[in-house]
Simulated assay, not measured.
Amino acid sequence: MLTVLIDGPSGSGKSTFAEALGRHWGLPVVHLDSFYPGWSGLVAAAAMVVDDVLHPSHPGYRRWDWVDNRPAGWVDLDPGASVIVEGVGAVTGASISRAEERGDVLTVRVCAPAALRRRRALERDPGFEPWWEMWAAQEREHFAGPGHVPVHLRIDMSGGNWGYRGLSGT
């Protein structure tokens, strides 16, 4: 069984890459955007990857209702299936350890320049603008903090084409 953990800051191209990889490999994709518990929820969602999404016998997650700003229904995942998990906070030491209990693990960091990321994110979701700085601060903490770990692959999504940076350890 394979668990692919894809991380990177907002607007970097994580979802685009994850969806393409999921189609290519025939794997389901779990997006942290589906369950961040609000705009201050990056750390909580990272913990939910470990505790819920990658739970060994009962994996799943509680969706977040962004309109009503509250938890919504539970989504079950197949405990015996390979999966791609993407979102800011997907790659931590704890999520890697939990994923290793399931089998093989591939970790990916997707990157792009800050101005391009911001433009992409706000084009995708104009309602994100009032929250951009608050979210960016959580991202900086995630990528600089103790949860930051080396990854197997770095993918540069600066242009229309994916730029593979190889096995990097960073």
Rank of each mutant, 00 (worst) to 15 (best):
H142Q: 08
P146D: 09
R120W: 12
W131H: 06
G127F: 02
L153W: 09
A137M: 09
G169I: 13
H152F: 07
G160Y: 13
D156F: 07
N161C: 15
L167A: 15
H148I: 06
F128V: 12
L153D: 00
E123K: 11
R165H: 03
F143D: 02
V151C: 04
E139A: 09
S168R: 12
N161P: 11
R119S: 11
R124W: 05
L167E: 02
W162G: 00
A114W: 15
E139C: 12
G145R: 05
V110C: 04
H152L: 07
G160I: 10
S158G: 14
H142F: 02
P126H: 09
V110I: 06
L116W: 11
P130D: 01
G166K: 10
G169H: 01
P146Q: 12
W132Q: 00
P113Q: 04
P126T: 05
F143T: 00
L153K: 05
S168V: 14
G166V: 14
A137T: 12
P146T: 04
G145W: 05
P113T: 12
R117P: 01
C111K: 11
R154A: 00
Y164V: 09
W132I: 00
Y164E: 11
R140W: 14
M157T: 07
R120G: 06
E141D: 15
R165D: 01
A112Q: 04
A137F: 11
G147A: 15
V110W: 02
S168W: 13
R120F: 06
F143K: 04
F143A: 00
I155Q: 02
L153Q: 03
R124L: 02
L153H: 05
R124M: 09
R154Y: 13
A144R: 14
G127R: 06
G159R: 12
H148E: 06
G145F: 04
R119Y: 02
H148C: 11
G145N: 07
H152Q: 06
W162K: 09
W132V: 00
E129P: 08
L153N: 03
